[in-house]
Measured scan of single mutants.
Amino acid sequence: GPGLTDLFKTEKAAVKKMAKAIMADPSKADDVYQKWADKGYTLTQLSDFLKSKTRGKYDRVYNGYMTYR
């Protein structure tokens, strides 16, 4: 089956995709945050998933999740 690194890459891609969806349409934020909360994502995990070469690119999404939880 898929190894943990593959799983991480898949999760990371999914999280980034959802983060971009929030940035494009902030009204989606609560739905996405709820999904992440259901998956039990911690802020540390989210921070790892949303690492970007562009500093602060996903800060709004991260901060939103922090206040959501």
Rank of each mutant, 00 (worst) to 15 (best):
K17C: 12
D59M: 08
D31K: 10
T67S: 13
A14F: 09
S52H: 07
Y33D: 00
D59K: 08
A29T: 04
M23K: 03
F49T: 02
D48H: 15
I22K: 01
E11I: 06
D59N: 08
K28H: 08
P2I: 10
N63I: 14
S27R: 11
K17I: 09
A24Y: 08
K35M: 15
V61I: 12
A29S: 08
G1R: 08
P2M: 10
G40Q: 05
A37K: 08
M18V: 03
M18D: 15
T5G: 13
I22W: 01
Y68Q: 02
K53F: 06
K9E: 11
D25S: 04
V61A: 04
I22F: 01
D25G: 02
K12S: 13
A37I: 12
L50Y: 01
T5N: 13
A19S: 03
N63M: 13
Y62E: 04
R69H: 06
T5H: 11
K20S: 08
A21R: 07
G56I: 05
K57D: 05
T67R: 15
Y65T: 00
G3P: 12
V61W: 01
Y65F: 06
Y41V: 06
K16P: 01
Y68P: 00
T10I: 14
V32G: 03
A29Q: 06
L43C: 09
K9G: 07
G64P: 00
T5E: 14
K20F: 06
T10W: 10
S27L: 08
L50D: 00
T5Q: 12
P2Y: 04
N63T: 10
Y62C: 08
T67D: 12
T10Y: 10
Q34C: 08
Q34H: 09
D30P: 11
G1E: 11
K39A: 13
G64F: 02
K35S: 12
K9H: 08
A13D: 07
A37L: 15
K51P: 04
Y58D: 01
V15G: 00
M66A: 14
V61Y: 02
P2C: 15
K53M: 06
S27N: 07
V15W: 02
G1S: 12
K12D: 03
K17Y: 08
Y41G: 00
Y33H: 02
L7V: 11
Y68R: 02
M23D: 02
A14W: 14
D31Q: 11
T54G: 07
Q34D: 04
V61Q: 02
T54A: 07
G1I: 10
F49D: 01
V32D: 01
A14T: 09
K39G: 03
Q34K: 14
L50N: 00
T42V: 02
N63P: 02
F8L: 11
D59R: 12
G1H: 12
D38P: 00
D30W: 12
T5P: 09
N63Q: 11
D6L: 06
M18A: 13
A21Q: 11
L4K: 12
S27M: 07
G64M: 03
I22G: 01
G56R: 06
Y65G: 01
K57G: 04
T44H: 12
T44C: 15
D31Y: 11
E11N: 05
T44I: 12
W36K: 00
Y41Q: 00
D30Y: 12
R69T: 12
T67A: 15
M23P: 00
A19I: 03
T42H: 03
D31M: 11
K35A: 13
M23L: 14
T5S: 11
K12P: 03
D31V: 11
T54P: 15
P2F: 04
D38K: 10
K20V: 06
Q45T: 05
V15R: 00
Y41D: 01
S47H: 13
V61M: 03
K16H: 05
P2L: 11
P2S: 13
R60D: 13
K16C: 06
D48V: 15
W36C: 01
D59F: 08
K12L: 05
F8H: 11
L46D: 00
T5Y: 06
K17R: 13
G3Q: 13
T42W: 02
D48G: 14
M66T: 06
M66L: 13
M66I: 13
Y62M: 15
Y65R: 00
Q34M: 09
K51E: 10
